[in-house]
Amino acid sequence: MAQIAVDSSPKKKNFLRSPYMLTIALLPIILAAWWLATTVTKSVPAILLPTPESVWIAFPRVLGADGFGDQVLRTLTEIAGGFALGASVGFFLGVLLSSSSRLRAAYLPFLSALEAIPTVILAPIIIAWIGFGIEGKILQAAIACFYAVFITTLSGLGLAEPNAVALMKSLRASKWQTMVKLRIPTALPVIFGGLQLGATTAIIGAIVSEFIGATGGLGYLMLRYRSSFDTAAYWVIIFLFLVIGLVVYLTIWYIEKRFVFWRRIEVTRPDLEKQ
């Protein structure tokens, strides 16, 4: 139901049965397997996969390194800036193309074909054009995430029920009114799916482009740790990306819950929706 999280009292009892427990239960298993493979049996060389202990020890070293905060901030700025830019352009183009079948016929194949160009190939070109700076990374992340938002917006806007469209028409609503009062709200659940997907690809876009060439950022740090064969530190940053991904997912999920409170049957978080 949409009355998610209205009632908090029975929540504690149910926590043991919530899907989080599955995740939490997996952690010791993964850790144990990791530990067995590296520390105990030494069957995987440390250069491929460091031991859990060494990663644990590397954490304070990496996080406490000089200027580490700046690097994190830089990457986060790239991701956020790229996502904001790409999602806005994607949404705008989705609205634009949904309102005209001629525009759709003309540009949809072209825009979809663009999406087939991998980030890795684009990155050197962008660097050549606008340099190693943060602007290029923002642009890269924007390009990476724009399509997901664009295509979900476009298809979501077509989901309004014929009866609802007829109602708007019978009220002599303008195209714009129908868009704002009916089509966009109807499309929101789908658009949020696109935003989730787009956020992930924005993260990937930013990192890949830092990998190809950058003067700062977490991807740049990873490259440096790799070239000094500091695998443990490298893994620390992988975990950081995991955390960033999780925070971004939860943030968008939280915003979605507020905007799309009226959506009932759907699935995003069945654990919370049941109560």
Binding site: E161, N163, A164, A166, L167, M168, S170, L171, R172, A173, Q177, K181, L182, P185, V260, F261, W262, R263, R264
Partner: peptide, 24 residues
């Protein structure tokens, strides 16, 4: 006009739905 489905927008309360024509 009224249709077979009520066509209530789920993001609007009953009153807001009734007032939709006013906005339009």
């Amino acid at each position: 006009m009224m249709f077979q489905q009520a066509v209530m927008f789920p993001w609007r309360t009953t009153l807001e739905n009734v007032l939709l024509p006013v906005e339009i």
